[in-house]
């Protein structure tokens, strides 16, 4: 069923499915993402979670959700979704469960699971065309364990396992994996990147995704104040800057066909995004890491050139 897109902030559903009172850090971009996603999805949802910061949203006996929740393990949330989805289908088919009781099955993981340990179980779920949603909130490191390097960590980022030092002055020496392309190669019916700073874009993507059966996947680049070394009050601005500088491309792929949903008219220099973050401070002080800064900018430009959106 296709739904009409919303046009303004006033159209964002007012009702909260994720209520206040969580142990997440102030300014957590992941939590803001999740809040919007659940507004779009509603409360007839079971979230299947992998080990991450958000595992601690549900601590016995409390949780902030109006929906259901199952914590699995770090590597296998999509397999958990498979079990829940299949069980709901079978129980409904056999008349053991009223179809009114059906739920949307939503995997919620950080980048550590999505980019690294959970790739096998995600690939399996995509291959089997499992009817589920996947929300990956990408803070670009293993956040819960103290911000260590993950496959999502970008070039030049300081993390707890890539501390800039004399021999390794730039922090992480590896560029970020392209999870969007990895997932896209499975040709899921719907795949998109989202941002907590663009809730209208986010909600409309969920509306479009809702018309498809099969995997509907979302990756959100989320500011993480303690890991990124930023002030909580700046999270939305930073998420916005990531888009305006072209670091985070807002796009969707319908059955592999890619379209960009937000394209800045004029790209801001990437330095504007990097400069205010503690995790990149060593790229500017005590000496500018010119080569790395150039490479980061170059990679961003290359992406947009490839998509013919930068001449």
């Amino acid at each position: 069923m296709k739904e009409e897109p919303i046009k303004s902030f006033r159209d964002i559903p007012g009702e909260e499915v994720l209520c206040s009172g969580t142990p997440a850090c102030a300014g957590c971009g992941g939590l803001l993402t999740l809040r919007h996603c659940l507004k779009a999805l509603g409360d007839r949802v079971v979230i299947v979670n992998a080990a991450s910061c958000f595992t601690l949203l549900a601590i016995y006996p409390l949780n902030p959700f109006k929906n259901s929740w199952l914590y699995t393990a770090m590597a296998s949330a999509p397999a958990g979704a498979q079990g829940v989805r299949d069980a709901l289908d079978v129980l409904i088919e056999k008349g053991k469960l009223d179809s009114e009781e059906d739920l949307k099955v939503v995997v919620l993981t950080g980048d550590g699971s999505a980019y690294d340990m959970g790739l096998s179980s995600t690939s399996g779920a995509l291959y089997r065309n499992l009817d589920f949603y996947y929300i990956c909130y990408d803070n670009e490191a293993y956040g819960n364990t103290g911000f260590q390097e993950s496959g999502a960590t970008p070039l030049g980022s300081k993390t707890a396992t890539t501390p800039p030092g004399e021999r390794h002055p730039i922090g992480s020496e590896l560029p970020k994996k392209d999870l969007f392309e990895i997932w896209k190669s499975h040709r899921p019916p719907y795949l998109a990147t989202i941002s907590p700073a663009y809730p209208i874009d986010l909600i409309n993507k969920f509306k479009r995704a809702g018309q498809y059966r099969g995997p509907k996947l979302f990756i959100s680049l989320v500011p993480c104040p303690p890991g990124w070394g930023t002030d909580p009050s700046r999270s939305v601005d930073l998420a916005k800057l990531a888009v305006e500088t072209g670091v985070w491309a807002l796009k969707e792929a319908v059955r592999g066909e890619v379209g960009h949903t937000v394209v800045p008219k004029r790209f801001k220099p990437v330095e504007e995004y990097l400069r205010g973050q503690g995790r990149f401070a060593h790229l500017f002080r005590p000496v500018r890491q010119e080569e790395t800064l150039r490479e980061i900018q170059e990679r961003v430009d290359e992406y947009w050139r490839l998509h013919k959106l930068l001449l």
């Binding site: 699995t72 296998s76 999509p78 397999a79 958990g80 079990g83 469960l97 179980s121």
Partner: peptide
């Protein structure tokens, strides 16, 4: 895709009823 996934799926289905 693996026994890790298999046991997760079996347990999750059991948890679903």
């Amino acid at each position: 895709d693996s026994e890790h996934s298999m046991i997760t799926a079996a347990g999750a289905a059991s948890a679903t009823g």
